[in-house]
Write a protein that binds this DNA or RNA. Structure first.
Length: 660
DNA sequence: AGCACGCCGACT
DNA sequence: GTCGGCGTGCTC
């Protein structure tokens, strides 16, 4: 009797064997008895016999036939993620499946949609630049085989147009395209563009904003091949595809591609592997490629395609100027030079954007009498003042409290908001520019169905003079009348004790700077800083990402940081920090010895030790080679799985971590 | 992770 | 007397 080896959603690094009369297809969803319950799993292997004694084998429940078996290539990607990210296959599969398919109730078949036409219609776009044509030709010639490309194009250089042409070429070969974007807000705009340019082509969306049934149906349409284009966020990388022909990762440098809980995968890295499995090209697009990606390009593992100029001949890159706030002191957050520049735009009927990457009214509420500070009880963070709703909010765990009328410690009624968020900045800008139409855009003001889209329309229609916003505004949008970007408080990010901080700050500022002057009007960027001589700001003024990236890579190599080395952490979480640290101290004694190709560091609390009531600490592991790191980790955690973690302590491995 | 079983303290 | 605390073991 054959044995079905089934992946189940349990934190155990193994498959579970079930007896069956006839072997179910590999990749089938099945309902199986597990302990006292019936659970949904996925058949990963068929074996002739099991190591489990026959009397303990239970019969496979039933095969769930409302969906076809998952393709071998899909299982292969899950298996790769399981090995690379050191998580049991069952957990990887459970994290990859849309929630609706983790339930046994059959998904009702939907009336077949109109059959997609055989031929691909493509609405012509703007005339292409020579650089765009060269990039498109290079990508087209790579169709049908695996090849990784970095599309390094300055803001406004028309990367999207390159994507569209490559998607077209993939569709014309009868294959599908997978397009990943970092944030859910970026999907509507790209979806609209895809629908306009590919009329009649079925597009499937894959992101967490979809209803469960819609997400499952999109998944099935992609697997069956009816959906020709799949567009989504990081989770879309797990969409099974019938005939994948090209993978595109837009804004590939963006940290959102790294999943920060559960299976901590990088969708960008898995996208590259997915393309490898499908033998198709992958395009990693960015104006500021991640250092990992840039290093791969320099090492000729990825082919570098440059778009050095803006696509519209009349649109020049914005000039970047530093405003030294030691000399030009800001009032209410804006230096006189910035106020003057905004005033000039108002006079000319142009738009300004004031960028402040901190939402809320003020980041801290404090008592001037006794020094009390409004802190989150669950996180090592201050509560942020949201004045409109009169609430204090933790931006990490979502905890909310009313703004206290008096100091909870000493009763003083004079509580002071310290610092400045977008709400406060908006207030002072409204007060200063009385006749201007000011719009604040951050994830608070954009919440609610259709709000974000409506705001974008208002900006494009010219109904707004001054925008105040966070990075939600920074990505991928074209505002033709926007000619000034002022960065209110860039220096905050310089203080971060994180070797990735310079890279992130550069990318963010370059990104937001790129909103200025995308049409015929010239753009200007003003960055307020106390450290105008800092190399990051100098690099931004020079507009020289490549030089900055090379310098950063040298620094990283000299200091022994990625991408010169591969990193992972073993992280522990507990109610008390000591319990987490004690577990790690014990775990270290179980680590493989005699490994001269991996270095283990001491257990330390994380930079933000407490999150949502859990105290977090970790042990860093570094290695010259990814393969060696992987072997080291799997050997190590095999012993940890075999032991039981102390009560109240949970642990996981984070490979290629971005949070320390 | 769940969930069962199992052995010791304050209550319907 | 038993409800329930969480320690330990197991899930094919």
């Amino acid at each position: 009797m054959p044995v079905a080896r089934v992946a189940l959603d349990v934190p155990l690094p193994k498959l579970f064997d079930y007896a069956c009369e006839a072997a179910p297809p590999i990749g089938a969803r099945v309902l199986v008895p597990f302990g006292a319950k019936q659970v949904v799993g996925v058949v990963c292997e068929i074996a002739r016999a099991s190591e489990v004694p026959a009397e303990r084998l239970r019969p496979l429940g039933r095969v769930l036939e409302d969906t076809p078996p998952l393709p071998a290539e899909w299982l292969e990607l899950a298996r790769f993620a399981s090995d690379y990210y050191q998580r049991p296959l069952g957990e990887v599969i459970a994290g990859a499946l849309p929630p609706r398919l983790k339930r046994a109730e059959p998904l009702r078949a939907r009336a077949a949609a109109a059959t997609p036409s055989a031929e691909t219609r493509f609405t012509p776009g703007p005339a292409l630049t020579a650089a765009q044509i060269a990039a498109i030709e290079a990508l087209q010639s790579a169709l049908g085989r695996y090849a990784a490309h970095v599309l390094y194009g300055v803001t406004g250089s028309g990367k999207t147009e390159v994507y569209l042409h490559v998607v077209r070429a993939a569709l014309e070969r009868g294959t599908q395209a997978l397009v990943l974007v970092p944030e859910i807000n970026l999907t509507p705009q790209l979806e609209r563009e895809l629908r306009e340019r590919f009329p009649g082509v079925a597009i499937a969306l894959a992101h967490s904003g979809l209803a469960d049934t819609a997400r499952a149906r999109a998944w099935l349409a992609a697997q069956a091949g009816g959906a020709r284009i799949v567009l989504g966020t990081r989770l879309a990388v797990f969409t099974p595809m019938h005939a994948l022909g090209v993978v595109i990762v837009d804004e590939e440098h963006d940290a959102s591609f790294k999943q920060q809980d559960g299976v901590r995968y990088s969708a960008r890295d898995l996208a590259v592997y997915k393309a490898h499995l499908a033998r198709c090209p992958v395009v990693l697009g960015s104006a500021t490629p991640s250092l990992e990606t840039f290093a791969n390009a320099l090492a000729d593992r990825y082919r570098l395609l440059r778009l050095p100029d803006r696509a519209r001949a009349e649109a020049a890159l914005p000039t970047v100027r530093l405003v030294d706030t030691r000399r030009d002191a800001p009032a209410d957050g804006l230096a006189p030079a910035v106020v003057e520049a905004i005033g000039a735009r108002l006079a000319r009927g142009e738009q300004s954007l004031v960028f402040l990457n901190r939402r809320g009214y003020a980041p801290v509420l404090a008592c001037s009498a006794c020094g009390w500070v409004g802190d989150c009880t669950r996180c090592s963070a201050h509560l942020v003042v949201h004045l409109g709703e009169r609430r204090l909010r933790c931006h990490h765990c979502g905890l909310e409290a009313p703004v206290p009328r008096a100091c909870p410690n000493c009763g003083n009624v004079d509580l002071t908001p310290f610092g400045r968020g977008t709400q406060r900045l908006e207030d002072s800008i409204v007060a200063r520019f009385r006749d201007a139409r000011v719009l604040r855009i951050d994830s608070d003001s954009a919440r609610g169905k259709g709000r974000w889209e409506a705001m974008l329309r208002a900006i494009r229609a010219g109904d707004v003079d001054i925008l105040v916003g966070t990075q939600i505004l920074a990505k991928g949008h074209d505002f033709p009348r926007l000619t000034l970007v002022a960065v209110a408080n860039a220096d905050a990010a310089l203080m971060a004790a994180d070797y990735r901080a310079p890279e992130r700050l550069f990318a963010q500022l370059q990104q937001v700077a790129g909103r200025a002057g995308r049409a015929e009007l010239p753009g200007e960027v003003l960055i307020q800083t106390r450290y105008p001589e800092h190399p990051i700001y100098q690099a931004l003024v020079a507009g020289d990402y490549e030089r900055f990236a090379r310098a950063q890579l040298e620094e990283r190599a000299a200091a022994g940081f990625p991408p010169a080395v591969a990193e992972a952490v073993l992280r522990a979480e507990a109610r008390e920090l000591d319990a987490a640290l004690a577990f790690l101290a014990h775990a270290i004694t179980r680590a493989p010895t005699a490994a001269d190709d991996a270095a283990l560091f001491d257990p330390v609390a994380m930079t933000m030790p407490r999150l949502a009531g859990w105290e977090r600490a970790h042990v860093l592991v570094q290695s010259r080679s990814r393969r060696a790191l992987q072997n080291y980790l799997s050997e190590w955690i095999e012993t940890l799985y075999a032991e039981r973690a102390p009560r109240g302590v949970r642990w996981h491995v984070d490979v290629d971590p971005v949070e320390f």
